[in-house]
Amino acid sequence: MQRLPLPHKIQITTARIIEWYQHYNGKVYVAFSGGKDSTVLLDIVRRIYPDVPAVFSDTGLEFPEVRQFAMSRDNVVVVKPEMNFRKVIEVYGYPVVSKRVADTVEYGHKPGSFRWKELHGEIMRSNGTPSEFNCEKWCYLLDAPFKVSSRCCAVMKKRPMKKYAKETGRVPIIATMANESRSRRATWLRMGCNAFSGKKPSSQPMSFWTEEDVLEYLYTYQIPYAPVYGEIIKTDGGGWTTTGEKRTGCVFCAFGAHLEKAPNRFQRLKTTHPKLWSYCMKPWEEHGLGMQRVLEYIGVPIE
């Protein structure tokens, strides 16, 4: 399905949205981050059902341009987390490497536990070969002079959305795509776009889209989007890219930063948003986020 032309993908996505909306008698909402993916989703949904609310979690972690754009849309419900990012770091730890690795480190301190074994490369497949989920490369984070955790997203985004859903009885439509991670692809293959069963029903009608589909949609239909992305242009290979940020997400999140070529997200942040960069890197005891020592510890350049 990922190889289908964009018009076909729009048709399928539209059908999934209609199916979801009708199943829940219109008691749905769009999880709206202000990023380009959810901007496309919101546009498609409102072409069919103009009154569906968009719900934005005002975490304080968004690029200022993304937050301003999200707040400027019609019928946006703003929810807020119970903790700010600094408190999440203090209570749980820093989001580094990836959600899976951070989770493994957070719960991997007990010798002999499953996660401890993953961090020491001791989990084996049934055929006797090492598990692909072993992450011994990051074992040294068990001794890091700071806490590591994957809980930031749950605290800052998922909990406020869950609270909204519980209070209103609405169910979410989300712009996640299967190519963003192995776990999301596995979920899509198992559940499809519309997951009606389970305790947390959710619709992900763009699961089979790609990054370039999103950019092509925004460009083709001239949809307004957050200016932090810059312009959408054609690449020499015939694809699509942006002249500004490629992904926005949470400004201070370090998931995947170790994989980026220079200039990485933090190096770009120093140029584009120097005040945010300064707060991010400032030592904890000086009321900053203390991320300079964290990023240096895992080998991520900051300037």
Rank of each mutant, 00 (worst) to 15 (best):
P160Y: 07
C152G: 03
P145L: 02
V155W: 05
D143K: 03
R170S: 12
L142K: 06
G169W: 06
M156R: 14
E167S: 13
R151P: 06
A154G: 15
Y164Q: 04
K166Y: 10
F146N: 06
L141Q: 13
S149N: 05
G169M: 08
R159C: 07
V148S: 08
D143C: 04
K162Y: 09
K163W: 11
V148H: 03
A165M: 02
S150V: 01
V155L: 10
K166Q: 13
C153A: 00
G169F: 07
Y140E: 01
P160I: 07
P172Q: 05
Y164N: 10
K163I: 13
P160R: 04
G169D: 03
C153V: 00
L141S: 13
T168F: 10
V155Q: 11
P145C: 00
V171P: 06
F146Q: 07
K162R: 11
M161F: 02
S149V: 05
R170D: 10
R151F: 06
P160Q: 08
K158F: 00
T168R: 13
K157V: 09
P172Y: 07
V171T: 10
Y164M: 04
C153P: 00
A165Q: 11
S150T: 03
V171M: 09
A154K: 15
K162D: 15
S150D: 14
M156L: 15
K162N: 14
T168M: 11
G169Q: 03
Y164W: 05
A165V: 01
K147G: 14
A154H: 15
M161Y: 01
A144I: 00
V171N: 04
V171R: 11
E167M: 09
R151C: 03
V148G: 08
C153S: 05
Y140P: 04
V148L: 03
F146Y: 11
P172F: 10
T168K: 13
K166H: 10
K162V: 12
P145E: 03
A144D: 01
P145S: 01
M161C: 05
